[in-house]
Design a protein around this nucleic acid. Structure first.
Length: 829
DNA sequence: AGCACGCCGACT
DNA sequence: GTCGGCGTGCTC
């Protein structure tokens, strides 16, 4: 009997993004299942290629010549039926390729090792020595060299090894034509699975010396050392022993031959190191927290339950609620996924989980190496990890009995992926929770307006936590009008009020956090004479000034340039940095508070591994009075001794050209303010702004989320933004500006043509084509067309975009442009 | 994409 | 006749 498999091959292009049909023979018929990873010959050269089985059928529709599956790559299928459904759903939802989705669910720990070989043709192989010699002598010199090297290598050689020979491709081609050699693909199955050898004593440590003496076993001095070492460190890794005792592998394995030790090969699981540490506190839940826990745990096994949204003020102890829920699930045999916006910014949360649950807590995020990802993947499959904390990609961990998904600070933009597939973590989690009856919990002090709207429409079970866990009131937020400040002659970045408060705080031995949403020293450098602005050479972005090396740096591509004293345009000496960044804050602060110890936390000071933890630890240990930072300090940090938070310029985000900027401002002000007064000490917040009347500011200083929501939702409705409409962004980019522009226009025309043919004549829902706000990144010009699903059904709209951008890609677009589709993008720059 | 093949012009 | 470069077209 013969069966047929439809599968997806690993090939990084939309041109092969299809299900391909292969047949497979009796050999595999019992072993091969849907979800298996297999090896298939692919393309004209039949290159061995990794592939994923999506369907298995007994019949095949049309009689195209089918190739045969070579091999099954794993014992068990790596994907469940649900996984494959999820892949198909995501592909359709985000208009990406199968492989994009597969890469999320299955880390590419496995590398196929492909190579081409030249072998003697079977006709030649069957000849006797003398006849072969005859054939060889009929060849030219080059050909003889090649055939002889094949003969020297037992009739088969890797083509790579012949590369030093001139014109090798042609020689091989000719030999192949003359029917002397065949050229074939071969592969080596190289699994990226580290194994580690563990060494233990075969005899009880108390009796081993006696055993050696009685049996008259002769040992070298190194071997004696090893035995002694094992007496106190039984079950050690062989590598450690070799390193610590400077022993050779042979000296250890010969102990095995003498029956003194056991060797055991086990999977090696690299645990990421923890640097940050907190003290364990025994915490009693308050009424509201208990209600939340009971609500969620009591419904855990109910079908068709709604996802939960916990709206709890900052410091309301949401993490405690999550941990209780995880604990309950654990006791019921269910595993949990705990998602955080960015793993590197949440050492405190990781630590709390590890403190409470120990070794079964795993950490997963996209900065792990492929090997490390694979380790975590395997540990989860083996049941060694029951709770996984991680960034958005952790959502796809291969738990068998997943019971709980928590999305903490779910309003954060990092939950929307910017890479293919450009998925929304909340959307995918809701899909999974619905399909597999998982308890989904979204938590935030400042829910996104979109999701809160859905909660109001009863799509979520809304749980409010209004009291802070420590029963302290939220810190009072005081607004300082920077216009007045300027009128009164204060040109500094710091208002008089803020300076006073900083001084008081330091005097009382308390700590201060200052927040500014821009790193670097100055936002741009320009000439006062001719208003020339220093720009990145690769991007349409002005360079941010970094004073340390007197350089301008592009925050998009990393381009750096030394800033000259003279203007390259007009030659004047009036080149000056403008705007403020965290570096400048630090500098000015040092001038005002000469004795204060200051730490700065932004992307520039935390890029080195462990440096973030170092800064946090230093601040926690009161080695500094003031911590200056960007966004990254708004997230969940817990410092007992901070009594003052200064928000230096709330306008920076407010004036950002994006429909979400008011929401972002409200969220940041609330989140940053929440860093003050987290323990027994009362906290205070000073907020500096030029726009004291803006509703985002006014609502934020009163901690009035509902009020802000009411204001904001009206605006969203009036302008047709989320949650009332979906938005689809298509960005066309490439090195040739003219072709990019032409292609964008081409796409627009094609879409108009298609819409007209369907009787649609109102094109108001299409914006563009226009150059993107950032019209060039990394030497690539960018044009954009934006769509809203106003007056058009979202699936029709997506169908049309899919048809133009994917199905008819080669007709509409040039080969050298890149087309990127984003459903509900975070920003439209 | 990435691979193989074929066409063409240059060179011996 | 031989060599190597590039353009083209397909992938069960």
């Amino acid at each position: 009997m013969e069966k047929y498999a439809k599968l997806v091959v690993r090939s990084n292009t939309i041109h092969t993004d299809n299900l391909f049909t292969y047949k497979f023979s009796n050999l595999l018929i019992d072993d091969l299942k849907v979800g298996h990873r297999v090896l298939v010959p692919f393309g004209r050269g039949n290159k061995p290629t990794e592939a994923f089985v999506f369907e298995i059928n007994n019949k095949v529709e049309d009689n195209i010549r089918l190739k045969e599956i070579i091999d099954v790559l794993d014992k068990e299928p790596i994907f469940s039926k649900e996984d494959l459904e999820l892949v198909k759903w995501m592909k359709n939802r985000y208009l990406c390729t199968y492989i994009d989705c597969i890469n999320l669910i299955y880390p590419k720990g496995y590398k196929l090792n492909n190579y081409k070989v030249a072998v003697l043709n079977s006709d030649i192989r069957n000849l006797d020595q003398l006849e072969i010699k005859g054939v060889i002598s009929s060849l030219n010199e080059d050909e003889q060299i090649v055939v002889n090297s094949i003969l020297d290598n037992k009739g088969k050689i890797k083509i790579d090894k012949l590369k030093s020979i001139n014109n090798i491709n042609n020689i091989l081609y000719r030999l192949n034509k003359k029917n002397i050699i065949d050229i074939l693909w071969e592969y080596k199955d190289h699994k990226n699975e580290k194994k580690i050898c563990y060494v233990s004593l075969a005899i009880d440590s108390d009796y081993i010396d006696e055993y050696i003496k009685n049996n008259k076993i002769a040992l070298g001095s190194k071997q004696k050392e090893v035995i002694n070492f094992l007496k106190y460190n039984d079950n050690s890794e062989i590598n450690d022993i070799m390193e610590l005792l400077n022993a050779s592998k042979k000296s250890i394995t010969s102990l095995y031959d003498k029956n003194l030790i056991n060797l055991e090969i086990r999977d090696y699981y690299r645990r990421p190191k923890d640097i940050y540490s907190t003290d364990y506190k025994d915490i009693k839940l308050n009424k509201e927290q208990l209600y939340a826990v009971n609500k969620i745990t009591s419904e855990m096994f109910e079908e068709n339950k709604k996802p939960y949204m916990i709206h709890g003020v900052t410091g309301s102890g949401k993490t405690e609620v999550y941990m209780e829920v995880i604990d309950y699930a654990l006791n019921q045999g269910l595993d949990s996924i705990f998602l955080v916006p960015e793993i590197s910014l949440t050492p405190q949360t990781i630590d709390r989980l590890k403190n409470r649950f120990g070794d079964i807590v795993g950490v997963f995020h996209s900065q792990l190496s492929e090997g490390q990802k694979h380790d975590v993947y395997k540990a989860i499959k083996a049941g060694k990890i029951r709770i996984l904390i991680g960034a958005r990609s952790a959502l796809f961990a291969p738990f068998k009995n997943l019971g709980v998904i928590i999305i903490d600070e779910f309003h954060e933009s990092s939950y929307k992926s910017e890479k293919n597939p450009k998925f929304s973590t909340i959307e995918v989690a809701r899909y999974m929770s619905h399909k597999e009856n998982i308890s989904l919990i979204l938590g935030s002090a400042t829910p996104s307006v979109e999701e809160y709207y859905k909660a109001c429409n009863k799509e979520y079970e809304l749980i409010e936590i209004k009291s802070r866990a420590n029963k302290r009131p939220l810190p009072k937020i005081e607004v300082v009008d920077m216009k007045l400040e300027l009128n009164n002659g204060n040109k500094s970045i710091f208002s008089i009020r803020l300076q006073q408060e900083i001084e008081t705080a330091i005097k009382n031995n308390n700590q201060v956090i200052l927040f500014l949403n821009r790193r670097g020293y100055a936002s741009f450098v320009s000439c006062r004479n001719c208003s020339y602005v220093f720009q990145c050479e690769n991007c349409d972005i002005s360079l941010t000034y970094h004073k340390i090396n007197n350089i301008g740096r592009c925050h998009y591509c990393g381009y750096e340039k030394e800033i000259p004293h003279e203007c390259p345009e007009c030659g004047s000496n009036y080149v000056k940095p403008f705007g403020i960044g965290t570096q400048k804050i630090e500098e000015e602060l040092k001038n005002i508070f000469k004795d204060a110890k200051i730490l700065r936390m932004d992307k520039d000071t935390t890029s080195k591994k462990g440096s973030l933890e170092e800064i946090l630890n230093k601040f926690k240990n009161k080695e500094a009075d003031i911590l200056i930072g960007t966004q990254m300090l708004s997230k969940g940090l817990d410092f007992d001794n901070v009594t003052l938070v200064g928000i230096l310029s709330a306008d920076m985000i407010l004036n950002f050209p994006d429909f979400k900027s008011f929401e972002t401002t409200f969220q940041l002000v609330t989140q940053v303010s929440g860093r003050a007064g987290r323990s027994d000490k009362e906290g205070k917040v000073i907020l500096q702004t030029y726009d004291t009347d803006h509703y985002a500011i006014r609502r934020a200083i009163n901690y009035d989320y509902e009020g802000f929501y009411e204001d904001e939702i009206k605006i969203r409705k009036a302008f047709g933004y989320a949650p009332f409409n979906n938005m689809v962004s298509v960005v066309i980019s490439g090195e040739n500006e003219h072709i990019v522009k032409q292609n964008a226009k081409n796409m627009y025309d094609s879409i108009i043509y298609l819409l007209k043919s369907r009787g649609i004549n109102n094109f108001d829902f299409i914006l563009g084509p226009n150059p993107c706000s950032i019209s060039k990144i990394n030497q690539n010009y960018r044009w954009q067309i934006l769509f809203k699903d106003e007056d058009i059904e979202i699936n029709l709209l997506k169908g049309i975009i899919k048809y133009i951008c994917i199905t008819k890609r080669d007709v509409v677009f040039n080969k050298e442009v890149n087309v990127s589709i984003d459903i509900n993008p975070n920003n439209i720059l």
